[in-house]
Design a protein around this nucleic acid. Sequence first.
RNA 1: GCUGCUGUAGCUCAGUGGUAGAGCACUCCCUUGGUAAGGGAGAGGUCGACAGUUCAAUCCUGUCCAGCAGCACCA
Length: 648
Amino acid sequence: MAQVSLTFPDGSKRDYDAGVTAAEVAASISKSLGKKAISAQVDGAHYDLQWPITADASIAINTMADDAPALELIRHDLAHIMARAVQEIWPDVKVTIGPVIKDGWYYDFDRTEPFTPEDLGAIEKKMKEIINKRDAVRTEVWDRDVAVKYYQDRGEPYKVELIESIPGDEPLRMYWHGDWQDLCRGPHLQHTGQVPGDSFKLMSVAGAYWRGDSDRAMLQRIYGVAFKNKEDLRKHLNMLEEAAKRDHRKLGREMDLFHMQEEAPGQIFWHPNGWKIYTTLQDYMRRQQEKGGYVEVNTPQVVDRKLWEKSGHWEKYQENMFIVEVDEEHAREKAINALKPMNCPCHVEIFKVGLKSYRDLPLRMAEFGSCARYEPSGALHGIMRVRGFTQDDAHIFATEDQIASECQKFIDFLSEIYRDLGFEKFDILFSDRPETRAGSDEVWDKAETSLLEATRAAGIEPTLNPGEGAFYGPKLEFSLTDAIGRVWQCGTFQVDFVLPERLDATYIGQDGAKHRPVMLHRACLGSFERFIGILIEEHAGKLPFWLAPRQVVVASITSEADDYVHEVVETLVKAGVRAEADTRNEKINYKVREHSLGKVPVILAVGHREVEERTVSVRRLGQKQTSMATLDEIVSELSVAAKAPDLL
RNA sequence: GCUGCUGUAGCUCAGUGGUAGAGCACUCCCUUGGUAAGGGAGAGGUCGACAGUUCAAUCCUGUCCAGCAGCACCA
């Protein structure tokens, strides 16, 4: 019999008969390891204990102590156990796929009746029964024809389609959890009892398209979370509760930052507090851009379709645009306009006025551009995904050989801004050509290559995000994560050879001839709206002092201190601090509670003692202890704290 | 946009086929209180919109609108 040589993590090697399973290998090492083994890494691949090993390889036996494989197996087995439970309760439900995801798994079903929350309870109960049965998990490799016939006979069309889409040279693997069978590439545990029955929870049911295609059937997806033990599950559920408290929609209401209403879906009514954050951030960005060599412009909101036709938006982007038709009787001329969904065409129009020389490049043209996009209703989300928003947008008109240095410059620029705003870490994705796009393949080749090279030259190896580029060019995406773990694209850097061509932008080169500039689209915050949403969630509403809309409340303890309260407020306001008085007829406890809930970073309480000594009692948000300070001390401290980081 | 759920006072929510309730917030009064809710009184709702069924609809049915979760979308 042929032999295979297996290398263990400690470097030792042992020979086994070819076709040996990881289960047998584990048992050969020690009885206890044989019992504890749950899977193996064979040449780095996650192997089921039952799979035969047919070639020399490195091997490491996994036990429940190994987090990553253990969690993967638990979650994957739970996906199967859940599908089995569902089919045991409702035999006519059709099964599809059920992968492991972050913190858990999901499984998509086709069933006419919707699953209800009560159903989830019933499924969970049935799953626990299955776990308690400790049914053996068994696997076999099947012939394609046999598998197709099996699922055709069982009336499982989704499985048939899945098999047909699996490349012909890949073996088809079947798994049984007890008598219940599913097509699955594995690996799995050895019996259902290995899954901890008290550490999972079915979370929700929602629609999901078959194969992620909105033209195909809508299935019902049940989500579950699972961990190795009860304590981890408890921690996870607790984390979700904490995350819900940071939700910017909730905090936006509690801090009186903004509201939204039916008459203007996806658009924001900024209240004074929220608008203060917005303008503070905008002032900061304006200063940074001036330092960064940008010029600021402003362009029209309502623009004739003719320009959008030229730019390509009318063709590629129309369904996302607000179209404005002017009533003929009142119009001087018949016109169809659109609210601008992007600023780029208008910036090109500014560039085109007058002759531009190569000496003018790179020309960095910035606008806090208000855009309107008709986003699908289901995409709207608080102030993070809206229909009316303002980008910190800029377009850099440059020569091709300036792309790399501008890319480098931008990454430095953005990094400093993110650091100032408290984001040390962010994800960078490289998105290449989408299916719907403008421009030839040659142009795309050039754009993708130059952007990727420029990024690498800046010392960054971005994660590839295939097919997600803008319709006019590839992009780098700088993403931040919200409280609930959703990732949002904020910053972006895009190379565009298409729009300058379509709108015929030129500059006069050193040779005296006309040349086509390349256009670099870029944004740091992305949109003020989204970025503020992220800021709120990142800080759980407790914004850094300089960004806090209400920085200081001076609260009287007795009404006899009211005059002094107003004096303190006035002094602080003069020193550039956002301070307000609270001389209401309420106890100090009440005021402290209210302003703490309102996330005011500093509460200054004053009573008889402070009036006499010309001091204040300082209470900082999140701290129970108070301290005393003289009026001069607190004013000089807070006036510094109120400055934006770039002004320090 | 799709699937499911939801829509009652500013907020959080209860409730009923006979046109509605709580707590907090709000207004007024009492209280001048030392660091996360002092006491009392009062005001406040076309029960998301429009149709239909019914003697009678906030409640049942339908359509629409908006929100929530997920999917799809996301320049």
